[in-house]
Design a binder for these strands. Structure first.
Length: 882
DNA sequence: CACTCCCGCCAATTA
DNA sequence: TAATTGGCGGGAGTG
């Protein structure tokens, strides 16, 4: 009978409840209990099979749990079996064994058996948490669905959430690529940063007050009406190839999932109640808060929560507050990203050198990040932050899912780029070749009213494709990267980023994120700012020239602080960068191009950023990039110099010499170049600028080397930027050489003061001198001048200090900054629209950043709702400045 | 009854 | 047009 039951699930017979060993799952995995913690009431014991037992059980009430478990087991088992086969690596703990799986599975009863959480566990059990970088695991939706015995629809639910965390990426129809948790920490970090921007304020306030999630939640609700961000960070896949793939709107689930995670990351308590989350999310999405919508959101959140629970990132808890007890979820995943990196490393010792694997690469960088605590910066961040970012598409575009995606992609790319850069840097700096960096081509600044920048004809995200992988390699690898790299990146590949020589300013449309990198190398280059127009032109040229280098993956370390110590390896560097927040960079972005839209970048060190957000392959580089690029979002600017850089040579460092090289490079002055990535999709909040500087001739570092240099990158909350048109002048003082950082920092500081930015006024940032209307505040501690910490409040994402960045240029705008826009290889054209500032503004409201929340909101209303939703939510006023 | 959240219709997007 | 994705909400299972 028992048997029968089991198979069947008869409700009554509880066969045995398995012991659910859940408790211990192997490694990583989280508990299996998805959601509801079911307790096994009756008997925890495992062996139930005795008749007696059964009876007892039955009698006792036949707790459903037991049944469920059994049933589940059944279900799972089969699945498991099949599943297991896949995982090759499993090595680590993470994976589940059969046995484990089974047990996990067992938990719930009927309905529960089918729960998404369980399903997700099964799903996860099939793949190693940390797959070898080299190998790529592809997931066939159909296959999985059949194996797991569920409908595809369910798989989508799981995959979408996983995708939001970059555990998987879509490769093609029905095909997803399993990345495992390698990038998880990085992803979480990004989400945290993004979350801080968006919700940071809330958090802070909470902190002040106290905390409680619940409060937190409330606040959020209230304060943040909506937030919407689009795809915060989306990593989904960059996919290169088909942008199409991406396209779907990644609306809700993905975004919702990211936001949800962000809430946890931002929350002090790490506990978020469903209702709060739902409200926040709703707001984002819609203004009206329907009850029905609320319900729907909650449903979705349950779905997400189930998956996250399966991932072991959260667990269900109840928050008892004043009002009573509410269901909530607590974050039990890693809080510090860096750490994660470590993990990665752990499992992949060599981390660095991964050869090529694409994704591996990604993961790797993470590693590079190495866990250091680094991220402290967050705090700084937070202060700065403000949030919001919202960006919406604004305008007319009704939907353009594509764009969104692209945007997202862009973001992703950006992220990736950063990572890549770092890596690259590490690698060698050789980056140039790798071009990874360059995924972006420079944008010439058009002068357009809309933007400052224009997309280059070819843009480029360079290389994405192959490149990405390269990132992985820390060491000498870079070269590899380059190889692989992509052709796509046309110019860049050359290794030279195109830099725009003279352009002094950069204007960015508000994009969500900017990463700024201060390249530094060549300073010589610093050219005084040419007229804008000139600059633009040049820039264009530069672009052409511009090589890929920029991106070196890792190069960044150095970037951030030029002289600084980038020393260590990447990790350190990264940390620094991040932490420091100091970015040496200057840059800024502004939305309104109208006026002076010109972006330029000075030559800088080439930072190249390789971006790729996703874990996946890096798509960034390649195709993916383009996609993103297309959208407007990214425009890379490069400095002309890059070429030089490429040329350069720095003797010192061989390509491989990652860090070092960069440092070395540092010696030379550089002008900074930046890449601007549009905010588009994903990250609403952030904008990235990459600096690609390369000094044009004078300096020259070997291209390779330079690239390696990492340029400091800065992430600026888009919000901050968004509103403002910013102009950056990368001028650096060459003198800086010694203290490049300082210069940058100054700039950085300016830029960062996001809050300050709030005002729509455009900001100028010059490396040396910044002219910003308001600037300062943001970073508390930062002195602009201080070399050490530039304190960009922005989160410097990947930035690294550049080793030496020196800019020749005189202070003010003199130095040209180049903007880079990412484009797709394909040359995705940017739409003019995208370009438009106005829209941007609308999109981005970064109200929070602005300072007045209220105003912010108003804006929302006024502006468009477009932005609104997203933006709104972040009511966060800029706290930091205070 | 409230909380969860499965199920699957069906629209949006792709291929 | 067919297929793939995925939003969405009814309504059922659980406690």
């Amino acid at each position: 009978e028992n048997i029968y039951d089991r198979s069947r699930m008869a409700p009554k017979t509880p066969i045995k409840n398995e012991p659910i060993d859940l408790s211990r799952q192997k490694g990583c995995t989280p508990e299996r209990n998805p959601i509801t913690p079911v307790k096994i009431i009756d008997r925890p014991q495992p062996d139930p099979w005795t008749p007696t037992t059964n009876l007892k059980i039955l009698v006792s009430a036949a707790s459903p749990d037991m049944r469920d478990r059994e049933k589940k087991k059944e279900l799972f088992r089969p699945i498991e079996n099949s599943e297991q086969s896949d995982t090759p690596d499993l090595l680590q703990y993470d994976i589940v064994d059969d046995s484990t799986v089974d047990e996990f599975e067992k938990q719930r009863p009927s309905r529960k058996q089918k729960s998404l959480g369980l399903l997700c566990q099964k799903f996860l059990a099939r793949y190693p948490n940390y797959p070898l970088s080299t190998e790529k695991t592809t997931i066939s939706l159909d296959e999985v669905a059949s194996i797991l015995g569920v409908e595809r629809r369910r798989i989508y639910d799981i995959v979408n959430v996983l995708e939001s965390l970059q555990l998987v990426s879509r490769v093609a129809k029905n095909q997803y690529c399993w990345h495992g948790r390698h990038n998880l920490s990085q992803t979480l970090k990004m989400l945290q940063e993004a979350g801080e921007l968006q919700y940071g304020e809330l958090m802070s306030s909470q902190h002040k007050e106290q905390d409680l999630e619940y409060k937190f939640g409330e606040r959020k609700k209230e304060t943040i009406p909506d937030s919407q961000d689009r795809p915060l960070l989306d990593f989904s896949e960059p996919d290169c190839t088909s942008a199409s793939a991406n396209s779907r709107k990644d609306k809700s689930l993905r975004i919702m999932s990211q936001k949800f995670v962000m809430l946890f990351l931002v929350s002090k308590t790490k506990i978020v109640t469903l209702d709060i989350a739902a409200k926040i999310l709703i707001e984002e999405t819609q203004d009206t808060v329907d009850h029905s919508k609320f319900k729907t959101k909650v449903r979705r959140l349950y779905d997400i929560a189930n998956v996250l629970t399966s991932l072991g990132l959260i667990k269900k808890v109840h928050v008892t507050e004043e009002r009573g007890r509410k269901p909530a979820f607590k974050w039990i995943g890693p809080v510090e990203f860096p750490e994660k990196n470590d993990e990665l490393r752990e499992y992949s010792p060599t981390s660095d050198p991964l050869p090529e694997t694409q994704r591996g690469a990604c993961a790797q960088y993470q590693t590079s990040a190495t866990g250091k605590q680094r991220f402290t910066r967050h705090s700084s961040f937070s202060s700065a932050q403000t949030c919001e970012a919202t960006r919406r598409k604004v305008n007319s575009e009704p939907n353009s899912p594509h764009q969104e995606r692209q945007d997202e992609n862009c973001l992703k790319m950006i992220n990736l780029a950063a990572v890549c850069r770092q890596k690259i840097e590490e690698d060698t700096g050789s980056a140039k070749n790798s071009s990874i960096s360059l995924p972006f081509s420079l944008l010439p600044v058009p002068g357009d009213s809309d933007f400052c920048v224009k997309p280059l004809p070819q843009a480029v995200f360079p290389v994405v494709q192959a490149d990405v992988p390269s990132f992985s390699l820390p060491n000498g690898i870079s070269s590899q990267a380059s190889h692989s790299s992509t052709p796509a990146a046309s110019k860049t590949e050359n290794g030279k980023p195109a830099l725009v020589p003279n352009q002094p300013f950069l204007c960015f449309p508000s994009s969500s994120l900017f990463m700024l990198c201060g390249g530094l190398q060549e300073n010589n280059v610093s050219e005084p700012l040419p007229a804008a127009g000139d600059l633009a032109n040049r820039s264009a040229e530069a672009q052409a020239a511009a090589p890929p280098t920029a991106c070196q993956k890792r190069s960044s370390h150095k970037c951030s602080s030029p002289s600084a110590p980038a020393d260590d390896e990447e990790p350190a560097a990264k940390k620094q960068t991040l932490e420091h927040s100091d970015l040496p960079l200057s840059l800024v972005v502004s939305k309104k191009p109208s006026e002076s839209p010109k972006a330029e970048s000075s030559p800088g060190s080439g930072c190249s950023a390789a971006v790729h957000l996703e874990t996946n392959r890096l798509d960034l580089a390649s195709p993916a990039a383009p996609e993103v690029a297309n959208k407007e979002s990214t425009k890379p600017l490069d400095c002309q110099e890059q070429e030089k850089q490429s040329q350069n040579k720095d003797p010192d460092e061989p390509p491989p010499g990652n860090e070092h090289s960069s440092k070395e490079n540092a010696n030379q002055p550089f002008q900074p170049q930046y890449l601007y990535v549009q905010p588009t999709a994903g990250l609403s909040s952030f904008n990235f600028l990459f600096s690609a500087n390369q000094a044009p001739g004078a300096i020259n570092l070997a291209a390779n080397q330079l690239p390696s240099l990492s340029v400091p990158c800065v992430m600026v909350p888009s919000a901050a930027l968004a509103s403002f048109p910013l102009v950056c002048s990368p001028s650096f003082t060459s003198p800086l050489s010694s203290v490049p950082d300082g210069s940058f920092s100054a700039a950085a500081s300016t830029s960062f003061s996001v809050s300050s930015l709030a005002s729509p006024t455009p900001v100028f940032i010059s490396t040396t001198a910044v002219v910003t209307p308001k600037v300062s505040p943001g970073p508390p501690s930062v002195d602009p001048q201080q070399p050490a910490h530039p304190a960009l409040h922005l989160s410097p994402v990947l930035t690294r200090s550049c080793s030496a960045v020196k800019l020749d240029s005189p202070v003010c705008m003199g130095h040209p900054v180049t903007l880079l826009k990412l484009q797709q290889p394909s040359s995705a054209p940017l739409t003019p629209k995208s370009i438009r500032p106005a829209h941007h503004e609308a999109f981005f409201k970064t109200p929070g950043s602005l300072g007045d929340p209220v105003a912010w909101k108003k804006n929302e209303g006024n502006q468009t709702r477009n932005a609104s939703s997203v933006q709104r939510r972040l009511e966060i006023s800029s706290t930091s400045p205070d």
